[in-house]
């Protein structure tokens, strides 16, 4: 999941080298934390969170194979 979020984020931002993704494993879920350059925040969130929603939807689809819930947080 980490890799997928990284690929998607890097494809959207202007400064891909500043994209940083970490995962925090919890009991029943995995939290994927995405960090980008401050100027790129808009590019991963979008108007009214439309881009963030799209990223989450793709990640959720990829995660259906795993038993765990995946949560993507943009920090």
């Amino acid at each position: 999941m980490k890799e997928l979020v990284e690929i998607l984020a890097k494809a959207l931002v202007d400064q891909p080298e500043q994209v940083e993704v970490t995962t925090v494993e919890k009991e029943r879920s995995v939290v994927v934390e995405l960090r980008v350059a401050p100027e790129d925040m808009g590019k991963v969130i979008g108007k009214q969170g439309r881009i963030a929603r799209a990223i989450r939807s793709v990640v959720k689809a990829a995660a259906t194979k795993q038993r765990k819930k995946v949560v993507v947080e943009i920090i």
Binding site: L12, I51, R53, A54, V58
Partner: peptide
Amino acid sequence: ETLDSLQYLINLSINKN
């Protein structure tokens, strides 16, 4: 929903700059 989301993201990326 997933197909549309992926399509949206691909469009953004391809048309970036």
